[in-house]
Design a protein around this nucleic acid. Structure first.
Lengths: 245, 245
DNA sequence: TTTTGAACTGTCACTACCGACAGTTACGCC
DNA sequence: GGCGTAACTGTCGGTAGTGACAGTTCAAAA
């Protein structure tokens, strides 16, 4: 079973971290599997829009231009379901459930891109979300069988690649977080502040003087290098310095 | 190849969402794979400690008591590496890299638990982290081969189970977020507040009067059902209502 | 033993925030 | 035309947050 062997070899390469270049990863995937196109997207929510952090794909500039010019991201059900969801999203399933997204699939057929595929959600820390979309060029029944056999391979490969992508780029934050170590009291006070308590209330809750609460808060602001309690709380929540209520 | 068939069948069951009971999932996994024990942990960071949200395992009450009474969580390298990391963590690798965690493995051997296994990080939204630890009872070289063949199965199964666990319990937050829809101006003002800007500064930045900034802030506090700007920002960051800087 | 860090407290003056009062303007929709 | 919603503005009075002054106590590390 040489195909199985190739798959296992490829996963081993990925696990050893030997692949951080999206182009390299895409080539590896297309060589190993019967994949037509791949798309890797990392984004974060912004109000009800999405802010794209990383985007790599093999669909080509023309397809990207079509997608952008027709504002297909507004109706793309893959984005809605995969970014925010946790289960693999089948393209035809999404097409079926969201009739309003038909222009997307029509556009795909126009430029000769298959409408068969699956999108794997890749949940990330700190509210970010990512997905790997896999596009295949095969009949529905064949894809059904192929998917059943290889979804696990896709999932592991996607996870390992995503891990590599996160490791490269999360380096910058690592150092700054090191200075952000808060003492237990500072954390407590900050947590209550994030819960909307005033200095007087926090002092009463913790059984200390109001002045001391202010003292801890001042230290926290200094450590976090911020100018207000509000900003301190924003930072703390983002860096998971205080518990999520 | 009946084993392969059994694996694929099992993954299909998981994907169809037919398994949300940890005990059921563990039984299914042990029946399908040569697994000795399983542990599922969902936690969130709290200062430099961890707050456990969900914990299910098959190690038994005695092992749990040993773990707790000897405070082995303080030295457990699996926790450190898997919760917060993104790659699968090999137990023997962790043991090798962290000599101070030897008491953990000694304790495992005392009560007859194998020291061979792998922990799969399952990153979750909103700063939470989860892991599925898999413990096997086989010689190192056999495990090496077995792991190579089935890591992808473990990963997909873990992801699907974790997805099911998240879907049950994240229901509570879904409704409250619906009321939290902020207008574009409210989002802007809140974003600047989270950046530590005062009303006067925000007014200057947006080119509106300070009074108007306060007006938007008041609406935001009402919508978010909070009592202070600080609490509003904490809520907003947690629910990704404003962008991560 | 000295030093370091964390936890704790008091006062003063200033600025920022917050609620409640009472409005105007502009846009889309039935 | 009326109705709802979002964006916008002014004033007043009270409370909360902020920085700078100047300390004590305790335990652990050097």
């Amino acid at each position: 079973m040489t195909e199985q062997q190739a798959v296992l070899d490829m996963l081993e390469i990925l696990e050893c971290g030997g692949c951080v270049e999206p182009a390299h990863f895409f080539t590896l995937m297309r060589r190993t599997f019967r994949i037509a196109h791949l798309l890797y997207l990392e984004a974060e929510p912004y109000a009800d829009e999405l802010k794209v952090c990383r985007l790599h794909h093999t669909f080509g500039a023309y397809a990207a231009e079509i997608y952008r010019s027709r504002a297909l991201h507004r109706i793309d059900p893959i984005l809605k379901l995969a970014l925010g969801g946790v289960r693999p999203v089948e393209w035809t399933m999404a097409r079926h459930r969201f009739p309003e997204c038909e222009p997307l699939f029509v556009a795909a057929q126009e430029i000769g891109i298959s409408t068969e595929g699956v999108a794997l959600p890749l949940p990330s820390p700190a509210g970010r979300m990512a997905l790997l979309a896999i596009n295949v060029n095969m009949p529905a029944d064949e894809w059904s069988t192929y998917r059943r056999h290889h979804l696990r391979d896709f999932q592991l490969a996607a996870n390992l690649f995503h891990a590599a992508m996160l490791e490269h780029g999360a380096m910058a934050g690592a150092l700054s977080v090191r200075d952000m170590r808060l003492t237990s009291r500072e954390t407590e006070v900050l947590t209550w502040a994030a819960a909307g308590k005033s200095y007087w209330e926090i002092a009463t809750i913790l059984g200390i003087s109001e002045r001391t609460v202010r003292f801890f808060m001042t230290n926290t602001r200094r450590k976090l290098n911020v100018v207000s309690n509000t900003q301190a709380v924003a930072q703390a929540v983002r860096h998971a310095l205080i518990p999520t209520v």
